[in-house]
Every structure is written in structure tokens, then in C-alpha cells.
């Protein structure tokens, strides 16, 4: 039986385990994918997913509009992830000046290669890239979440893209060589 967001929220507010499991099943994969890309570590991603969903179930009564459920869950997951990242180690933002803007003849990469390339980015760039390009946050919001300036957010995104181009070019080159 497929439950609506409104039914899911009402059931979770009443602490119904069936509704909690249904909500978890509906959103866990999307949220885990975000976390796995952020941490590039399955164990940490699972731990943060666990913490985030416990927070979700404990605070779901505060959600006034069930139509905002997906965004609300995403916000909790992202903020929990960043808090956990900060607890583990400082988030550093690497300087972009060292990367050459080299020319790339062909962009024949796949989504799987892109996924790997995103996960291999330095932590700070990875966060900015993911929040802006995948999660749709604005630079102003990212600056607020990560406690950086809007300028840093923009330069980090630019740097992340340069790094991605570089690593994806390497993938493509390796693939071409093997072929």
C-alpha cells in the first residue's frame, strides 16, 4: 500500500512503526546516495543515515506542511552530514590556482565515472559541488551552511569542476588506451 506524505507524517507523529518504516523505505535510498557521495565511505554514510532518520522521527511533529516532507528530510540529512563531518575533521577548502585549465578533446564519461569522480574530490570542494549542482542549493545558502563566504563557495565550485574535468579526462584516456 502506497501512503501519501500526509499519511506518512500523521502515522510517524503517532509513533507508528509501520509508518516510520514506510517513510524510511521511501526516502532512505535517495538520502543514502547523497551521504555516500559526501563521505565516500559506506560505514559513515550508514551511521549518518541512522542519526538523521532518528532526528527525523523525533522532530517530525514540528513539520507543519507534509508537502514539504522531501525537502525537510533532505535538509536534516545534509545538515546532519555536515555536522558529523565537522566532528570528524575540519572541512578544508583547497586553493584552485594550481590546476591548469587544460583542453579536453572529448567528454565521453558515464554517470558511474562521474559518481566516482565526485566522491574522489577533496572534502570541501565535494560538499560545495554536491550542494549546488546536485541538491540545488544557492551559493548564499551553501555559504551559510558551511560557514564560508559566497565568494569562497563560487571559487570552490569552479575548482571542483576543474578537478572533475581532470579526473574524468583521465578516466576517458585510460578507457581509450585500454581500447
Amino acid at each position: 500500500m502506497k501512503l501519501s506524505n500526509s499519511e506518512l507524517v500523521t502515522g510517524c507523529v503517532k509513533n507508528s512503526r509501520m509508518h516510520q518504516k514506510a517513510l524510511y523505505d521511501k526516502f532512505s535510498t535517495t538520502m543514502y546516495s547523497i551521504l555516500f557521495r559526501m563521505f565516500n565511505d559506506r560505514e559513515h554514510a550508514n551511521d549518518v543515515l541512522q542519526d538523521a532518520f532518528i532526528t527525523i522521527f523525533q522532530t517530525i511533529a514540528d513539520l507543519n506542511d507534509p508537502e514539504r516532507l522531501a525537502g525537510w528530510i533532505r535538509t536534516i540529512v545534509v545538515r546532519t552530514a555536515i555536522r558529523k563531518m565537522r566532528e570528524r575533521s575540519k572541512i578544508t577548502f583547497t586553493d584552485a590556482s594550481e590546476i591548469n585549465d587544460e583542453t579536453l578533446p572529448d567528454f565521453n564519461f558515464t554517470a558511474i565515472q562521474l559518481d566516482e569522480a565526485i566522491r574522489s574530490l577533496p572534502k570541501g570542494n565535494r560538499l560545495v559541488f554536491m550542494l549546488i549542482e546536485i541538491e540545488g542549493y544557492k551559493h548564499k545558502e551553501v555559504a551559510e551552511i558551511l560557514n564560508i563566504s559566497e565568494g569562497t563557495s563560487k571559487s570552490q565550485l569552479n575548482y571542483a569542476k576543474k578537478l572533475l574535468r581532470k579526473s574524468l579526462n583521465e578516466y576517458t584516456s585510460e578507457y581509450a588506451t585500454k581500447k
Binding site: 509513533n15 512503526r17 516510520q20 518504516k21 524510511y24 532512505s28 535510498t29 535517495t30 543514502y32 546516495s33 555516500f36 557521495r37 559506506r42 554514510a45 550508514n46 543515515l49 541512522q50 532518520f53 532518528i54 522521527f57 554517470a111 558511474i112 562521474l114 559518481d115 565526485i118 549542482e133 546536485i134
Partner: peptide
């Protein structure tokens, strides 16, 4: 970016959440 692969959490994660709740 629209076609990024989906990653699945461990099955034990729900058990942990459930036991915590």
C-alpha cells in the same frame, strides 16, 4: 548528474534505527 547511480544503505541500518527508537 540526472543519471547518477543510486546507492543502497545496509539492511542493518533500519534495524539500528528501529532498535534506537
Amino acid at each position: 548528474l540526472c543519471e547518477l547511480p543510486v546507492h543502497y544503505p545496509d539492511l542493518a541500518t533500519w534495524e539500528k534505527i528501529s532498535s534506537n527508537l
